[in-house]
Design a protein around this nucleic acid. Sequence first.
DNA 1: TCAAAAGTGTTTATTCTACACCCATGA
DNA 2: TCATGGGTGTAGAATAAACACTTTTGA
Lengths: 230, 230
Amino acid sequence: MPYIYDYPRPAIAVDCVVFGVDATNRLKVLLIERQLPPFVGQWALPGGFMRPEESLDNAARRKLREETGIQEGFLEQLRAFGAVGRDPRDRVVSIAYTALVNLRDHTLQAATDARDAQWFPVSALPPLAFDHAEMVQVALVRLQHQVRIAPVGFELLPPKFTLTQLQQLYEAIWGVAIDKRNFRKKILKLGLLVPLGEKEQGVAHRAAQLYRFDGDRYRQFQQAGLNFEL
Amino acid sequence: MPYIYDYPRPAIAVDCVVFGVDATNRLKVLLIERQLPPFVGQWALPGGFMRPEESLDNAARRKLREETGIQEGFLEQLRAFGAVGRDPRDRVVSIAYTALVNLRDHTLQAATDARDAQWFPVSALPPLAFDHAEMVQVALVRLQHQVRIAPVGFELLPPKFTLTQLQQLYEAIWGVAIDKRNFRKKILKLGLLVPLGEKEQGVAHRAAQLYRFDGDRYRQFQQAGLNFEL
DNA sequence: TCAAAAGTGTTTATTCTACACCCATGA
DNA sequence: TCATGGGTGTAGAATAAACACTTTTGA
């Protein structure tokens, strides 16, 4: 049963740039191996066509779930990509999303039109289908800015984390080394981290204090019109 | 002659949030009065449907030209708006753009489906059609961030401007008062402004030095990996 | 007892903030 | 000559940057 319009219409797709940080604190991106044309066998971002009855945001969340099994976590629109030749089949405008997930909690399950799903270091990505390499690049730059002024980095960590884990997260995102003492002073002065009584378990050295991010406190902070900058 | 697809397709539109600063240094947004349904007679952002053979960016530039006569200036994508009920007619995903124009140089010419085009202060907008009020809000927040770290503000000024004009521009965008001496020190230290030999003409007080923004210098600055922040 | 990472302060340089008066110009 | 905005410096406070050793833990 065909759909008929008076004017030609491009298709609308969504694609997700999913960032995670692995056990060795490297920043990674989730890719799927395509098993449908075009670009069969190539690595690509998880994504697919939007349905008319869902919002863009919901479409992104649905595709992420369908193709990777990821149900929750931060998901935010990056921007639309609308160059004319970006899809060889047809005119397709794609809305890219950035997702941040706590990689330690997720086991991946490929599904639908994804043959396989795998994490790749941002610094060593394989060739990507469509304009997905550009999407990753834009998403990374946006992430680098965003973690400076908003507490989105915590989405990449487990709920309980050490200050060293947090520091290494920033180092991975920005690609720079940070002074330990200065970092701790600055981040604790914000007053957004709560030290839990607990310590790290099972490490072959002095166990570190665990912290959690205080979301309620941050909302108050925001409502008071305050900003932070790292 | 109809267009037939196997799956239903939303339509794709573009909308432009056009900012300008008037002679009294107020930040304004350009709106058009709709003369086609829906929302006939209401104020809305200039925009309309994308054509399949053009990129999103070109669609935005075309609509801006058609509806306002504006040919040039800064134009950058904001993001896509894709809530389900945002257009009462049909499922329409709209890609919003931010445009910055030197208002002093432009006389407006309404055209196409715009009955009239007018500048409104951002602080006193009329009720807007669709979700355009949200678009303006998002665009303003983005602009406030962007002028802090990139020299986009100059797009709103004539090529030759005084430091006071520049200061008042930032004050209009941020909605705050800025100390004159501190502002001058900071902005001149960046080394991106070139004092022209000339002075302001026809003012009833001491004439101010005119400056221009040094775009070449800024590109070198960028390539050296430097950032600025006001 | 050794290896490995946790945790902790001070000094110096830089940047930010607040603040007031004289100058040039055209009406 | 007066009204209007142009143009300029300094002192004190706050913030940022550089830097090294002791502590705790498990192997």
